[in-house]
């Protein structure tokens, strides 16, 4: 699965720590999500969408 997390975070000038705190996860998890090493659970995906104020499908897309 592909995602735009890194782009969205950069647009808001947020640090990894800020996003991790908003999502209630570790910075390692934010890093793993941004680098495509980990696809989030559905509850975490909803939380990400809420934090960025965007629908899930505009953040995540099907990929290789």
């Amino acid at each position: 699965m592909n995602n735009r997390l890194k782009v969205l975070r950069a647009e808001r000038n947020w640090s990894q720590a800020h996003l991790a705190e908003a999502l209630g996860v570790s910075r390692q998890t934010v890093n793993a999500l941004e680098t495509g090493r980990y696809d989030p659970s559905l509850p975490l995906a909803f939380k990400i969408a809420r934090v960025f104020g965007q629908p899930i499908e505009s953040i995540f897309s099907e990929g290789d």
């Binding site: 640090s15 990894q16 720590a17 570790s26 910075r27 390692q28 890093n31 680098t35």
Partner: peptide
């Protein structure tokens, strides 16, 4: 080592 920005915090 953990691929984090900046420095590791107390929790890490």
């Amino acid at each position: 080592t953990l691929n984090l920005e900046g420095q590791a915090g107390p929790d890490e």
